[in-house]
Write a protein that binds this DNA or RNA. Structure first.
Length: 237
DNA sequence: GAACCGATTTCCT
DNA sequence: GGAAATCGGTTCT
C-alpha cells in the first residue's frame, strides 16, 4: 500500500476524450498533504460531464463564474457546493475551451485513514456547530457512526470524498497534475479493460433524454468502495 | 432583490 | 420510500 514516490498523473490522459480519461482516472490516486498528515485514496468511481450540449452539466448554459474552470485547461479542480452543504470534486478534462469534467464519486482509502475519519467527524460537527441541543446529540451519534465505519466506506460518495479529504471551495482551480499542489493526482495501477463498469449518472433527474440515460458513470467493477451497489451494469470496453 | 432549485446524505415512517 | 437540512448560483421581475 505504501508507495513513497509515485509519478504525477499524466495531463495528456485528461486532455482529449473525457470517457477515455474517465477510464484512465480509475485506479489513480488522490493525494492530500505531506508527512504524517498525508492522505491517499484510490479513485474507484467517476462521472463524465461533457460539453455545452450535455444538459446534465453545469456548463450547459455557458460559462459563469462558478463553472469557469471547466472551460480551462485539463488537470485542474472544479469544486462546487451542492445542496447547500456538501462539496463535490471534479477533474477538468478536454482541451481549453471545451467545458468538461469528471466528478470524483468515490475513493478507496489507502493511507491516512484515521486522518480521513477525523476530517469526516470535523465536517459533521461543523455542520451542527450552531445547532440546538438535539442537533448536538445527533452529531454525537453521527460521530459514533463514523468511528464505527469500515475504512473502505469512508469516501464512498462525492460529498464524502470531499469531507474525508477536507476539500472545499478554496481548492477550486488547483492543478492536480502538479505534485506541489496541496491536492494532486498520482499514477496508480491502471484498471484492466474488463474490470471497469459503466451505467447512468446519478442525481441528474432534471436532465432530459438522451443525457439522462447516457452510461457516463464509470467505476471499478466489484469495488467495495463505490458509492452504490453496481448490480445492473455493463462492463465497458 | 426575490424566487427557485440542486452532480447529496442521513434519518424517519 | 420519502423528506429534511441549507445556501449560493442562476434567473427573472
Amino acid at each position: 500500500v505504501n508507495s513513497p514516490t509515485s509519478a504525477p498523473f499524466d495531463r495528456a490522459l485528461l486532455g482529449h476524450d473525457s470517457h477515455a480519461a474517465a477510464l484512465a482516472l480509475l485506479g489513480a490516486r488522490l493525494v492530500r498533504g505531506d508527512g504524517p498528515e498525508r492522505r491517499v485514496g484510490r479513485i474507484v468511481e467517476v462521472e463524465a460531464y461533457v460539453g455545452l450540449e450535455d444538459l446534465a452539466s453545469h456548463a450547459h448554459r455557458g460559462r459563469t463564474r462558478r463553472n469557469a474552470v471547466m472551460f480551462g485547461p485539463p488537470g485542474h479542480t472544479y469544486v462546487y457546493l451542492v445542496y447547500g452543504m456538501y462539496y463535490c470534486l471534479n477533474v477538468v478534462t478536454e482541451a481549453a475551451g471545451i467545458p468538461a469534467a469528471l466528478l470524483v464519486r468515490a475513493v478507496e482509502p489507502l493511507e491516512g485513514i484515521e486522518g480521513m475519519r477525523r476530517s469526516r467527524i470535523e465536517f459533521s460537527r461543523a455542520r451542527s456547530a450552531r445547532g440546538t441541543e438535539e442537533t448536538r446529540a445527533r452529531a454525537d451519534r453521527e460521530e459514533a457512526r463514523i468511528l464505527a465505519l469500515s475504512a473502505t466506506r469512508l469516501a464512498s460518495g462525492p460529498g464524502l470524498v470531499c469531507a474525508a479529504f477536507s476539500i472545499d471551495r478554496r481548492d477550486n482551480g488547483l492543478d492536480l497534475c502538479d505534485s506541489a499542489s496541496p491536492l494532486y493526482l498520482a499514477a496508480g495501477e491502471p484498471v484492466a479493460p474488463g474490470s471497469a463498469a459503466s451505467g447512468p449518472r446519478v442525481g441528474i433527474g432534471y436532465a432530459p433524454e438522451p443525457w439522462l440515460s447516457h452510461a457516463w458513470r464509470y467505476w471499478i467493477a466489484g469495488s467495495p468502495a463505490v458509492s452504490k451497489a453496481d448490480s445492473s451494469a455493463d462492463v465497458s470496453r
